[in-house]
């Protein structure tokens, strides 16, 4: 157990090993590790960004939904209002139409009544004339009494 040339041999071997490790072993492995680290960090960052974007989109969607709901409510209210207006309008129209028809009917009725009265009157006149003529057949001359009858008609 003493020192000899083995010592030098081992030192040379060691030096060569270190040289090889430095050149061919360490850099690629550490490079791969660093690359992976970077990729993972990037992935995490983009995941974070994605999450934030999603949150934003969610908020936006909620906002839009709210607006849409509001709009829908407005539209419904407007429609209801318009419907009410239409109903009112048609009610009014219907009433006016009814009034108009009532007036027409009334005038017709009046006309009918008038006509019937005229008819009745002329019939009454004819009847009266017939009665009177039957009563006065003998002694009264038709021509002599005509002036009297006209007077009577005017009074009716």
């Amino acid at each position: 157990m003493n020192f000899n040339a083995t010592l030098i041999g081992q030192m040379i071997t060691f030096g060569l090993l270190v040289l090889f490790t430095m050149k061919y072993v360490w850099p690629p492995i550490i490079q791969a590790m660093q690359d992976r680290q970077k990729r993972i960090a990037d992935g995490l960052a983009s995941a974070e960004r994605g999450m934030r974007e999603q949150e934003l989109a969610k908020a936006k969607a909620a906002q839009m939904l709210k607006e849409a709901k509001q709009q829908a409510t407005e539209i419904i209210a407007q429609a209801q209002k318009r419907a009410n207006e239409a109903i009112e309008q048609s009610k009014l129209e219907a009433r006016a139409e009814g009034d108009r028809q009532l007036v027409v009917a009334k005038t017709e009725i009046e006309q009918e009544v008038n006509r019937a009265r005229e008819q009745l009157r002329s019939q009454v006149i004819s009847l009266a004339v017939a009665g009177a003529s039957k009563v006065l057949k003998r002694e009264v001359d038709e021509a002599a009494n005509a002036a009297l009858l006209d007077d009577l008609i005017a009074q009716l």
Partner: peptide, 10 residues
């Protein structure tokens, strides 16, 4: 000893 001292002397 040559190995271990080879290392430590390096």
């Amino acid at each position: 000893l040559n190995s271990t001292f080879g290392l430590s002397i390096s």
